[in-house]
């Protein structure tokens, strides 16, 4: 049984239709995003199932996961706060922002809060250099940008997500 295929049959069909029929492998990236949707990371089972759908070995699929930063092979917080501290953002205070944010949340860069909700990561340029400090938030559902941030505004956002999580 191929869980991904069964669960997302229509969506997978739409994705495959984007590419020539003899080049199904092009769909590996969109399918990895689907696989990540539920748990926020790609499981070994997902590798096998995507391989089955596209005619790839699970090792080939795993190599794609390893090559890109937005695919994850290990669980982390439900919400990944990815702060850009690359050169242009760092020239506008991103390193201090990241340090103070981590200090206030009580974790180190790369760590997850005890409740499993938030992971804070440092990432490379996100093409928002004029709006630093900034971060993107990656969840299973996608990616959102938060620009012109302060430590206070970021902490408020985190509080908001915590409340939402408790209510759901």
């Amino acid at each position: 049984m191929n869980t991904l295929q069964e669960k997302y049959a229509n969506e997978i069909e739409t994705i495959l239709a984007k590419y020539p029929a003899d080049h199904k492998q092009s769909a590996v990236m969109p399918l990895l995003y689907i696989a990540q949707r539920e748990d926020g990371y790609v499981t070994k089972q997902d590798l096998v199932e995507i391989g089955e759908i596209l005619g790839m070995t699970s090792t080939e699929v795993a190599s794609i996961v390893g090559f890109y930063t937005l695919y994850h092979d290990k669980p982390a917080g439900k919400i990944r706060i990815q702060v850009c501290n690359d050169l242009p953002c760092a020239l506008r205070g991103a390193d201090e922002f990241l340090e103070k944010l981590c200090e206030n949340v009580g974790i180190q860069v790369g760590e997850t809060t005890e409740d499993g909700l938030v992971t804070i990561e440092a990432v490379m340029c996100l093409a928002a250099c004029d709006k630093a400090p900034m971060f993107q938030v990656q969840t299973g559902d996608g990616i959102e940008y938060y620009e012109d941030q302060t430590v206070e505004s970021a902490l408020e956002l985190i509080e908001g997500w915590k409340t939402q999580e408790k209510e759901s």
């Binding site: 984007k18 080049h23 492998q25 092009s26 769909a27 590996v28 990236m29 969109p30 990895l32 995003y33 596209l54 790839m56 190599s63 794609i64 090559f67 890109y68 930063t69 937005l70 695919y71 990432v123 490379m124 340029c125």
Partner: peptide, 27 residues
């Protein structure tokens, strides 16, 4: 017209790496 999302790799801005990435092999 179709959109195709990368997944975080600077090298894929290089045109032949981009084409490889689109084909589902390493970028």
């Amino acid at each position: 017209i179709f959109t195709h999302l990368g997944a975080g790799a600077y090298i894929c801005g290089e045109e032949t790496a981009l084409l490889n990435s689109m084909e589902g092999v390493l970028g």
